[in-house]
């Protein structure tokens, strides 16, 4: 069976590197499932959840931030500013971060870069929560 060579990297570390049967990424146009022999594609991704089906059929969930995905027939590279595996997510910390970001958005008149930063971190925290909570149901 054909496999994908998957790499998920952030500026801080290599979050995942190995083969996979399927990857689902939160593309700019909606969820995007990638199987081996996909045609070359380049797209942006939004903060959300990446689902990896590993070689052994295990399912892995990661919360990711903004970034890009490059797809080649045998290779998928995910470049993002955040990638946290489900088990590493601290639900409480994420909840606090959401509350803090919402408060900042509400109370302070932020402009330009600052606003974008706060909104970005809010979306990232929400993505973490989404990944963490789905695994419980």
């Amino acid at each position: 069976m054909a496999l994908l060579n998957l790499e998920i990297v952030t500026p801080e570390k290599r979050a995942y590197s190995g083969s996979a049967r399927m990857v689902v990424v939160p593309g700019a146009e909606g969820e995007l499932g990638i199987l081996p022999d996909h045609m070359p594609l380049m797209t942006q991704i939004l903060p959300g959840e990446v689902q990896v089906t590993t070689e052994s059929g295990e399912e892995l969930f990661l919360a990711v931030g903004e970034g890009f995905v490059e797809v080649c027939p045998d290779r998928v590279s995910v470049l993002t500013d955040m990638a946290i595996e489900e088990v590493e997510i601290d639900e409480k910390a994420a909840e606090e971060a959401v509350a803090r970001a919402e408060r900042e958005l509400r109370d302070q008149a932020l402009g330009g870069e600052e606003l974008a930063t706060v909104q970005g971190s809010l979306l990232k925290s929400l993505a973490q929560l989404k990944v963490k909570r789905r695994s419980r149901h």
Binding site: M42, T43, F68, C72
Partner: peptide, 19 residues
């Protein structure tokens, strides 16, 4: 060596503008 053209989503300009 890919040979084939890239597919861009949503469109080439948008992706290049970001990347």
């Amino acid at each position: 060596e890919g040979g084939a053209q890239y597919l861009f989503e949503p469109d080439a300009d948008g992706v290049l503008d970001a990347v």
